[in-house]
Write a protein that binds this DNA or RNA. Structure first.
Lengths: 160, 160
DNA sequence: ATTCATGCAAAATGTTTGCAGCTGT
DNA sequence: ACAGCTGCAAACATTTTGCATGAAT
């Protein structure tokens, strides 16, 4: 079995190797962004959110640097770009094998709930097998209404 | 069991009911956009593409009308918004129950295999229910190798 | 007659780019 | 010294909005 968790240092190493290979440079800004992005919570962070977090540590940071650095993380396979339909691109650390999770997205308030379900994973592989298909990765997103938005819908039903 | 196919007229009826309920109006533009969007192929259409198609039938159409009409379709549950990361929002007709299909995408040759699996759908709803979530739609994509690409991989193993 | 819809253009939003000066190698 | 990086502002692309006119109820 593949190990469940890969330590921070491994991600850092991936980046360092990539920088070396492409003759890119290691900078203070990249370090801070790396740290904020990988070592602090906040899944599915937007560029703006990350910008604000980094700004606290490094006030003269510019938006462009955040954009460029996230693109860099994406290029070396460390970050994943997502878009849940609110006009903002979100990024999340790429999950290594065993860390996979799926998403429920509330179309009412935009809340994102993460989940993992072994049976869905199992049947996905099963369907694939029946089609001679070998699954490397999958993406599952459920769109609908979260609990509190369902309440709001009920309450407001008369007003429509 | 729920019927597999809902005829065009049913979608039209959903829209008409929604318009009536909200005291909105039926217009020529909405009819044409409806027709282009639901009755002509082209999955995952962009606003620009739809605009160009509608323009052929109704040259003085404006972009804003397309945007507003797609938002209307979305509101009444007929359209679904997607974003594949190229900066353009795409729309597709919402699949009714029994019409839903998921995708296996071969990363070797790009082939897309559609499938439907009731158990996956069942467990998706189940996971949602446990979280107080009401699912309107879902998206499942399996990425991997199709049968023939797996063969090729074996044959070519020496060349890698 | 009233209310809503449309088309246009302007504005807003999110993202990318060009460039002068700065930093890491 | 060189190549790459940064911050800024301007440029871009997409989407939304305000408003006068036109259409549907």
């Amino acid at each position: 079995m593949i190990p469940k968790v890969r330590p921070k240092s491994e991600r850092k190493k991936v980046l360092e190797l990539y920088l070396a290979k492409k003759h890119l440079k290691s900078t203070k800004q990249r370090d801070i962004i790396f740290d904020e992005f990988f070592n602090h919570p906040g899944q599915h962070i937007t560029v703006e959110e990350l910008y604000e977090k980094v700004k606290k540590q490094y006030p003269k940071i510019g938006y462009a640097t955040i954009y460029r650095t996230l693109k860099l993380f994406k290029e070396c396979g460390l970050a994943f770009e997502r878009n849940f339909g609110d006009g903002k691109t979100r990024y999340e650390p790429v999950k290594f094998e065993g860390e996979h999770h799926d998403h429920m997205i509330c179309v009412g308030c935009g809340r994102i709930i993460e989940f993992e379900n072994q049976r869905i994973e199992y049947y996905s592989r099963e369907v694939a097998r029946l089609n001679g298909f070998e699954v490397l990765n999958h993406k599952l997103e459920l769109y609908g209404y979260c609990g509190s938005c369902r309440e709001k819908k009920k309450e407001g039903a008369n007003n429509l």
